[in-house]
C-alpha cells in the first residue's frame, strides 16, 4: 500500500483569519492525507524549515491579508536554496487574478481563490503529490 501523502498547511504573515486553513487541513485529513498544520504567524523560514523536518510533498499557504506578493516568493526562494525543488506549493486566499498569474509564473503549482471547492483542492493536492513523489 502507498504511504499517505504528507502535506504542510501553513498560515504565514500577521493575519489570524484561520477558518479557511483549518477547513482545508481537515478536508485533506479526511481524504486520508497526513496533515501538519503549523498554526499562525509563520515566517517563510519557519515554513520551509517545517516542510524539511516533516518531509512533506506539498505545502499549502493560506493568505487573506494581501501580503502574498511579499511572502510567497520568499517561500519559493528558500525551497530552492534548500534543494527542495520537488515540493509543490499551493496558495489559497484572497489573491487577485493578476497576482495569481505572477505567482504561478514564479513556480506556485496552483492558486485557489474564494469559492474553490474542497473536492477540487483535495484532487489537486493528490495529483501534485503524485508528481512530486
Amino acid at each position: 500500500m502507498n504511504k499517505p501523502i504528507r502535506v504542510l498547511v501553513a498560515k504565514p504573515g500577521l493575519d489570524g483569519h484561520d477558518r479557511g486553513a483549518k477547513v482545508i487541513a481537515r478536508a485533506l485529513r479526511d481524504a486520508g492525507m497526513e496533515v501538519i498544520y503549523t498554526g499562525l504567524r509563520q515566517t517563510p523560514e519557519m515554513i520551509v524549515d517545517a516542510a524539511l523536518q516533516e518531509d512533506v510533498r506539498v505545502i499549502g499557504l493560506s493568505i487573506l491579508s494581501g501580503a502574498h506578493n511579499a511572502i510567497v516568493p520568499r517561500v519559493l526562494d528558500l525551497l530552492a536554496e534548500n534543494g527542495m525543488i520537488g515540493v509543490k506549493v499551493v496558495v489559497g486566499g484572497i489573491i487577485p487574478d493578476e497576482d495569481a498569474e505572477q505567482l504561478k509564473k514564479k513556480g506556485v503549482a496552483a492558486v485557489f481563490q474564494p469559492g474553490a471547492s474542497l473536492e477540487e483542492i483535495v484532487e489537486f493536492v493528490r495529483n501534485s503529490a503524485a508528481q512530486a513523489a
Binding site: 500577521l14 493575519d15 491579508s65 494581501g66 501580503a67 502574498h68 511579499a70 511572502i71
Partner: peptide, 10 residues
C-alpha cells in the same frame, strides 16, 4: 520585520 508587505493593506 514582521510588517513586511502588510503596512496599510487591511
Amino acid at each position: 520585520a514582521s510588517s513586511l508587505g502588510e503596512v496599510g493593506k487591511c
